[in-house]
Design a protein around this nucleic acid. Structure first.
Lengths: 330, 330
DNA sequence: AATATTTTCGCAAACGTTTGATATTGTTAA
DNA sequence: TTAACAATATCAAACGTTTGCGAAAATATT
């Protein structure tokens, strides 16, 4: 069955295509009577405007592209959910592609976006190289790019991200308040700037405000690594009394060890992490965490995108504020 | 900066648009020399074919639509990830929209898909009404629809889903093998057909093969409800020795209670659930589960989609087999 | 040398829509 | 009654491709 088109409607009603087109979009040039007729027929014939023809004609696509390392991820999926909500409210649809942290995929995805003349791109850099060349090409072609979470240093781009330093600082404050003496601080992949930032912020805060607290800094690239580190450190005679987990991945590893070793939380060990809250609330008692919300970040990113679309250039780096959520683990 | 088009390339090289077009797609009519020239210029001018023009001309879009209740979901996000992978391999892009389980959104999404003339739709029905009318309209317009997970009863559609009955049966087997005497079986929202199927299968299996086992059947619509149920049942003098959790949500509730009550697993209580594995592996010991993989389901759905696209009508209901994954909880 | 064949390319229409310019009415003011 | 104007509707070009058909040039066959 062939699709209903303006032409079809026009010849049914014995009027011109342009009249039909204008009637459908409530153009003042068209009389109420004609509009009524056209709308009625369009509805009964199940007319759906052809997005491609429109986009070809108007040179604008009403589609945003989103690149995430992985869709299946507690943080990114809430980011996507937020962007999707806002997009739909504003009449945009989303094309979502995952890079799997591979440069090759990221480039492929960008190509698809360019070929589909997306109105804008939300991009999270893949861990590998910083191939900004391609992104520059996009902005040259007036496709705004809003980077989120893992953003480039180049400040010719619009960026939104979590207030990473602040997150770490809040966690540090908390540890100081708890009067901890010995802390095990586990950070993520040291290759990622996010790890570096958080660690630097954490470290400098602790050194300034609680220089006497003894802190063991370690990096863990995976859940398993985090678990092993915890076990090893816990085996020492001088045990730590508090552990800081920079990510959900790390927290999961820590909690596996905690459960296996039957450690009482918070009596024997206090735990604090940075998370969106899902994982920390799985346990009893709930783990205390500094909230980093992918959802909030998504909302913010969308605002930035619209600003870019409307008012030309808006190059800023915005951050979402972090807040502490108390659980029973400290 | 304006986009490079075939026309632009053509006038640069003083040849016709059609020659450029054919050269670019390696058409045998074009000489090697011309092809070389064209390709070189196209590359240097950063030519990107305009997907809209192509789709308008060829009437095919190379885009699939996906509707899920929520992107931010352990099951659906892995489904999406699988479909995305396969799609890209086959040159398709994905448009993903979430219904938030609202009929209104679902219809909006479908409209967007129709207007974008997607090549096919992967749909998971929202919990509310079964508005199959719209889906029929799509198939009439020769847009194949592959339903997944929550599928309609109408068997004029292509459907893929988990082998729900089998999942429950496997769990039941496991419980029998463990020699359980008293079981607490917690199922999900009784309004969903998936809950009904699993419960029916579980119940009939137990009645047939282990009629003497005492089973308490309850429904829980949320994590909190599951936790409360567990606590209440566990307070009884005649305690259950095994609990079956139909979903991750329920398992999470159960585990909160288990942790709070400091119940030893599996000594005091055995636990088995149905899950994709992420949640069960968060705990120590790992919870035993019957695996239902969104990822596998995605792969299967994609195969069905391609079959539909190629060979006309392929109306079948396929299921992904379930398998038992042993943890330390039984 | 004339014809037939192949290789290489251009013409033009079509996909469905939007929109500036223009034409056709009907209405009002002088 | 006629000029002036507003209201309504049409024409036609354009967006960037693809593709059937035919034309020209080069090569091969008699």
């Amino acid at each position: 069955m062939t699709n209903t088109t303006l032409k079809l409607l026009a010849q049914q009603l014995q009027i011109s295509i342009s009249t039909v087109s204008r009637a459908l979009k409530d153009h003042p040039d068209i009389s109420a009577a004609t509009k009524a007729k056209v709308n009625a027929l369009a509805h009964s014939m199940d007319y759906e405007p052809n997005a491609y023809a429109i986009q070809l004609r108007t040179q604008s696509s009403k589609i945003f592209g989103v690149i995430v390392p992985a869709i299946s991820n507690l943080f990114y999926d809430s980011f996507i959910a937020a962007v999707e909500e806002e997009s739909r409210k504003n009449g945009y649809a989303l094309m979502i592609l995952q890079s799997s942290n591979k440069l090759e995929n990221e480039l492929d995805n960008l190509k698809i976006f360019r070929q589909n003349r997306v109105s804008g791109v939300f991009a999270c850099l893949s861990a590998q190289a910083e191939n900004l060349e391609t992104y520059h090409r996009m902005t040259e072609k007036e496709i705004p790019v809003v980077f989120f979470d893992i953003v480039p240093k180049d400040n010719r781009f619009t960026k939104v991200r979590m207030a990473d330093e602040r997150c770490a600082t809040i966690a540090a404050e908390c540890i100081i308040k708890r009067n901890s003496k010995k802390v095990l601080a586990i950070f993520g992949d040291p290759g990622l700037s996010i790890s570096q930032k958080r660690k630097a912020a954490f470290q400098s805060f602790m050194e300034n405000y609680a220089p006497k607290v003894h802190i063991t800094y370690v990096d863990a690239k995976s859940t398993n690594e985090a678990e092993e580190i915890f076990r090893k450190q816990y085996a020492k005679v001088q045990k730590f009394d508090t552990v800081f987990a920079m990510t959900d991945e790390i927290l999961i590893g820590v909690m596996k060890a905690v459960q296996a070793l039957e450690i009482k939380v918070p009596k024997q060990v206090g735990i604090i992490s940075i998370s969106n809250g899902f994982i920390p609330n799985l346990y009893h008692p709930h783990i205390c965490y500094v909230e980093t919300s992918g959802y909030e970040l998504g909302k913010l990113a969308f605002v930035q995108m619209m600003a870019n679309l409307k008012g030309g250039k808006t190059l800023t780096e915005l951050t979402v504020e972090a807040k502490y959520v108390a659980g029973g683990s400290m």
